[in-house]
Every structure is written in structure tokens, then in C-alpha cells.
């Protein structure tokens, strides 16, 4: 029984996404995260732990517990 609980905990990924805590079910890639958030990867630039992850690699990079993710896009500005 405790084994089952541990396994559930292991599959949870506690992330910081755009500065806010967010917990998602693991395993998950960055592309999975964008999918869960309903974001179109063609419109977003992703930084993982302050390193840019290029679009073609989003599906290859597995998220780890404690990862810090920044999702940015273009908005109006001067």
C-alpha cells in the first residue's frame, strides 16, 4: 500500500511555470506540458531552467521535478 503511494508521488512533477507552481502528471515532455496548457508550440518560445529549448526538441526533453519553465510570446509593445 505504501509502495503504491510512493509510486503516485514519483509520477508527480512539481514545476515552476511562468513563476507559479504547477503540478502535472509525469512522465511528461515540454511538448506534453504545452499540450496540457492548450498552447500552440509554433507561437511560444520555451526556456527550461534558463536555457532555450528549440521547437524541434520540445518533444524530446523530459521534465524533471523542480524544473523551472518559462513560456513567452510576442505581445504589443513599442
Amino acid at each position: 500500500m505504501s509502495l503504491g503511494l510512493d509510486r503516485a508521488r514519483v509520477s508527480e512533477l512539481r514545476l515552476q511555470v511562468n513563476g507559479d507552481p504547477r503540478t502535472i502528471a509525469g512522465p511528461a515532455t515540454l511538448l506534453d506540458l504545452l499540450g496540457q496548457l492548450g498552447l500552440d508550440p509554433r507561437m511560444i518560445v520555451v526556456e527550461l531552467n534558463r536555457e532555450i529549448v528549440r521547437r524541434p526538441r520540445l518533444g524530446d526533453v523530459a521534465l524533471k521535478d523542480g524544473d523551472q519553465v518559462e513560456l513567452v510570446h510576442f505581445v504589443g509593445g513599442g
Binding site: N18, L37, G38, I44, V45, L71, H73, V75, G77
Partner: peptide, 19 residues
């Protein structure tokens, strides 16, 4: 046309970028 780089607002599901 100039644009700014900002975090996506994850709480406003209908928020759209300028593109």
C-alpha cells in the same frame, strides 16, 4: 512593427499573442 516579449498568461485561457 515592434513587439515585446512577455510571459504567456496561463490564467486567461483566451489570451492571444499579437501574432
Amino acid at each position: 512593427i515592434t513587439v515585446a516579449v512577455r510571459r504567456v498568461d496561463l490564467d486567461r485561457s483566451k489570451e492571444e499573442g499579437i501574432l
